[in-house]
Amino acid sequence: MSFTVINDNDRVQQFWKWETPFEPRVGKYMEVTDEQGNKAAFKGAMARRVMPPPPESYIEVPPHDSVKTTFNIAKNYCIKSRRYTVKYSGGGVSELEAGNALKITVRDL
């Protein structure tokens, strides 16, 4: 899947990569539910954080630009052959807003 953060402002914006797909193997940052409303079990790593965050934990987004990453949702969630709705949960330390929901179908190969 891909994940994009867009900056529509006239100045540089920054966010913490913690609890976002920009740190793909750590944290529960997606809501993954099947058609019956069952949540996919989270199997990824959780981490305790040092506050305040170190400088390398920030990502800057230039004015009127975006940053994008890709990740494999099956590495953090138990995904089976069925239909899911996937949505970034938003908030948390990243302070990014929740995004659009994406409907996917997973099939056995």
Results as ranks from 00 to 15, higher is better:
Glu31Trp: 06
Met30Tyr: 05
Lys43Tyr: 00
Gln14His: 13
Tyr29Thr: 07
Val67Cys: 02
Gln36Asp: 08
Asn38Gly: 05
Pro55Ile: 13
Arg25Ile: 06
Asn9Ser: 14
Phe42His: 08
Lys87Cys: 09
Ala40Gly: 02
Glu23Asp: 13
Thr69Asp: 12
Pro55Arg: 12
Asp8Gln: 14
Val106Ile: 13
Leu109Gln: 11
Gln13Leu: 13
Val12Thr: 10
Gly27Gln: 02
Ser94Cys: 04
Gly91Val: 00
Asp65Lys: 07
Val93Met: 12
Val106Asp: 04
Asn9Trp: 03
Gly92Cys: 02
Thr20Tyr: 09
Gly44Ile: 02
Ala41Met: 05
Asp34Ile: 03
Asp10Trp: 04
Pro63Ala: 11
Lys39Ile: 00
Arg82Phe: 02
Glu31Met: 11
Met51Asp: 15
Val67Phe: 01
Ser57Trp: 15
Ile73His: 03
Val106Cys: 07
Lys75Arg: 09
Asp108Asn: 11
Phe42Lys: 08
Lys103Gln: 10
Ser81Asp: 14
Tyr77Ala: 07
Asp10Ser: 12
Lys43Cys: 02
Lys17His: 10
Ile104Ala: 01
Ser2Pro: 07
Tyr88Asn: 03
Asn7Arg: 10
Ile79Arg: 04
Phe42Asn: 06
Thr33Cys: 02
Asn100Ala: 13
Ile6Trp: 13
Tyr84Asp: 00
Ser81Asn: 10
Ser81Thr: 09
Thr33Arg: 09
Lys80Thr: 13
Thr105Val: 05
Phe71Gln: 06
Lys28Pro: 11
Asp108Lys: 13
His64Leu: 12
Tyr84Met: 01
Ser94Leu: 01
Pro21Ser: 05
Asp108Ile: 08
Val12Glu: 10
Ser81Trp: 04
Thr20Ser: 09
Glu23Cys: 10
Tyr77Trp: 12
Tyr58Glu: 15
Tyr29Cys: 07
Gly99His: 11
Arg25Trp: 10
Ile79Lys: 04
Thr70Tyr: 07
Tyr77Gln: 08
Gln13Ser: 10
Pro63Met: 05
Gln13Ala: 09
Tyr88Ala: 03
Tyr88Trp: 02
Ala74Cys: 05
Ala41Val: 07
Asn9Gly: 10
Thr33Ala: 04
Tyr58Ile: 13
Phe71Ala: 06
Ala41Cys: 01
Lys39Ser: 13
Phe42Pro: 07
Ala40Thr: 03
Glu95His: 13
Trp18Ala: 14
Val67Trp: 02
Gly99Gln: 13
Thr4Lys: 15
Ala47Gln: 08
Val32Pro: 00
Ile6Ser: 15
Ala45Asn: 01
Asn7Ser: 10
Asn72Glu: 14
Arg48Tyr: 03
Ser89Pro: 01
Ala45Thr: 03
Glu56Cys: 08
Asn72Phe: 06
Gly44Phe: 03
Arg11Asn: 12
Pro62Glu: 08
Asn72Gly: 04
Ser2Arg: 12
Lys68Ile: 10
Asp108Tyr: 07
Ala74Leu: 04
Met30Asn: 02
Pro55Thr: 11
Leu96Ser: 03
Glu23Leu: 15
Phe22Cys: 06
Val5Leu: 14
Thr105Trp: 00
Thr85Ile: 05
Trp16Ala: 15
Tyr58Cys: 11
Asp8Leu: 11
